[in-house]
Design a protein around this nucleic acid. Sequence first.
DNA 1: CGGTTTTGACCGGCGC
DNA 2: GCGCCGGTCAAAACCG
Length: 164
Amino acid sequence: MDNNYSMLFPCPPSSSYTIPTSGLMNNGQSSNAFLGLKPSNNNIDHHLDDDHHVKGDESSVRKKGEKKAKKPKYAFQTRSQVDILDDGYRWRKYGQKAVKNNKFPRSYYRCTHQGCNVKKQVQRLTRDEGVVVTTYEGVHTHPIEKTTDNFEHILSQMQIYTPF
DNA sequence: CGGTTTTGACCGGCGC
DNA sequence: GCGCCGGTCAAAACCG
């Protein structure tokens, strides 16, 4: 059951996604990056809860299956040579898994802000390494920490909300 | 030293 | 019931 992101973007040929290997969040030198924003479908939602039991961090005991907070999911495709897409926020990589039908693994990032359980996934097409699909989960509850480049400015303007 | 990354293992869900 | 898959966490290693 792969995500339905494939239909989110006008993917040209194959329907495979992939991601960069050890992609870090250096100062994204996104020179000529093309942004194609699109709202998620009403099928990408599952059990998105923010009750991530991190080490030594508990505040609210939520029961699963009781009420799942629909987290907004934003997915957009970017045309970049580098897999490092810096939006101005601080991300901590918490996992890397390879996806079937794909040659490259998928990287999972999480906002290092306390209380900001925003997650980000980066996928790269096996066929088109020049295409990077980034999926954002949740909303940042804190201002941008730094002004890396105007890339954050672009994101600020493309704040879109899902139909949920 | 702190923060972050890396790899592996584990978990939960669902499919058959 | 078991297997499969995706997703997350964990400990250790590495960097600045």
